[in-house]
Design a protein around this nucleic acid. Structure first.
Lengths: 270, 270
DNA sequence: CGGGGTGTTGAAGCCTGTCAACAATTGTGG
DNA sequence: CCACAATTGTTGACAGGCTTCAACACCCCG
């Protein structure tokens, strides 16, 4: 058993979240459906279809590629438990992590047989995944308008997260970048119904955090110390506690609105 | 008349590009259709539909917002001529440019009434645009599978560009970042059928380039000098000439594959 | 119990930012 | 068409955030 056990809380989330009607067959809670429940245009009727699309379950050990850069993507993957990272290698071997994938995330999340993919997906913890064949997925999403809307929404959200990362790297200091990232992760875990409060297991190592934020591991370490001594977070053995969410949010210039595209009311996360 | 006249070459492009059959009604060449012609799954039959979607033509002067951050996006915009930039302001007023928009680009390019948008679109030159109502666009894209595929492809390409920018900001030096950007712009202008060789008008000012690359205007200037003295580019009065494409590509660690998602053969750009 | 992965700390240097002044260019109005 | 103002580009000196290199401590796992 790994030390990272965001996974254990999945069951509790299913009971807690108020959208049981969305997953009638699945009392334990499907994090993807939890996410979609925040989409105002989501048609609950297609929840079973979403659920049925991903048939095959598999377990991927930590630090194994789920998808490799340059491979053929003939399966669509739904991450059920655990953390993963989408990354890309620059020519000199430097690695950029493009996004952290949390329970409920789907990749690649578009209905187009896209052939060779230009990034890799790495399991940061032991992951439980479910897969759909690309054909079945493409067919379903292109035929059913409700399903199409749902996956367009996921795609828009995904792009908004990417843009937020670009702003993070382009305009903010190391301190603000990391504060911002922690806010994003907390908010997204909440959207997926995986956590409740301000504590969660932070799967990435400091080196992986560094590769995500365009920093070195050393400087990431020093910055984390700073966040600790400022009383914003507690971080021990990869368990992160957000001690002062308001100040962390301000430090990271974090605005959660982008996580709920099209939503009238911003989700109550902070 | 502005000094930036990438626009003038649009007509020529229409005659030159070998896909006249895709735009039967439009001898002058629709840059969006030029782009889509590179998508192997594109059904030429829906070209007229694409063309007919965007009815209203408008002109936007330089340095005016086409879409403002926080506004309601009830229209879909197709950029026909000129350059624009998608940007986002951080809380302290710092601006991050998220992408440069070239002829043939559409925004927002998804069939979902997304309400308030979290970025702005700024005209970097005088722009000619065509607009579609969100309703008509949504309806058409959600109903027609071929059209859906086309816009999914555009969306995937867009996301790939975003990812490339993230790698750029996260892993590369100022010198490599700018080299990479110039490669991308040349490649995309070529995809849209707007240029032919290695010369084009670079609409953004050095300050705008800086805001795109996460640098200061001063350092961008110095880096451009370096690129000049190294004989990679010529840049005078915003007219950019790529003098040595092979070395520029190496300096920027640029791989054009991501611009043609799903394409078997990478486009012949470099 | 030992070893590799991970976290921590120090010192030195460099890439990039900041501040400031000026030149060149573009746009505007008389 | 010229004169003026505003924007954009250029250059220098200096400062600082982050990187690099290196060593060591810790912890988990076999």
């Amino acid at each position: 058993m790994t030390a990272i056990d965001t996974e254990r809380r999945v069951e509790a989330a299913g009971l807690r979240s108020g959208n049981c009607q969305l997953a009638p067959r699945n009392e334990s809670g499907n994090p993807l459906l939890n996410k979609l429940a925040h989409f105002s245009g989501f048609n609950p009727a297609c929840a079973p279809t979403v659920d049925r699309l991903f048939r095959r379950t598999a377990i991927v050990p930590r630090h194994r590629d789920i998808l490799s850069e340059g491979s053929q993507a003939d399966e669509i993957v739904l991450l059920l438990r655990g953390w993963a990272a989408r990354y890309k290698l620059a020519h000199d071997g430097e690695r950029q992590i493009l996004s952290f994938l949390l329970p409920g995330d789907v990749f690649p999340s578009h209905p187009l047989p896209v052939g060779v993919i230009d990034y890799g997906i790495l399991a940061l913890t032991r992951c439980t995944i479910k897969t759909a064949t690309a054909e079945a997925f493409d067919h379903a999403v292109l035929r059913d308008a409700d399903l199409a809307r749902a996956f367009w929404w996921l795609s828009i959200q995904d792009k908004a997260i990417l843009r937020a990362w670009l702003v993070n790297l382009g305009t903010r200091s190391a301190y603000a970048r990391i504060a911002n990232l922690f806010c994003e992760l907390a908010a997204r875990l909440r959207l997926a119904g995986v956590i409740d409060g301000w504590v969660f297991d932070l799967a990435p190592t400091q080196e992986e955090l560094a590769d995500a934020e365009g920093l070195t591991a050393v400087h990431t370490n020093r910055t984390l110390q700073q966040l600790r001594t400022d009383g914003l977070i507690k971080l021990d053995k990869r368990r992160l506690t957000i001690l002062d969410s308001a100040r962390l949010q301000r430090a990271g210039d974090f605005d959660p609105a982008y996580l709920n595209p099209g939503g009238r009311a911003p989700i109550h996360l902070f």
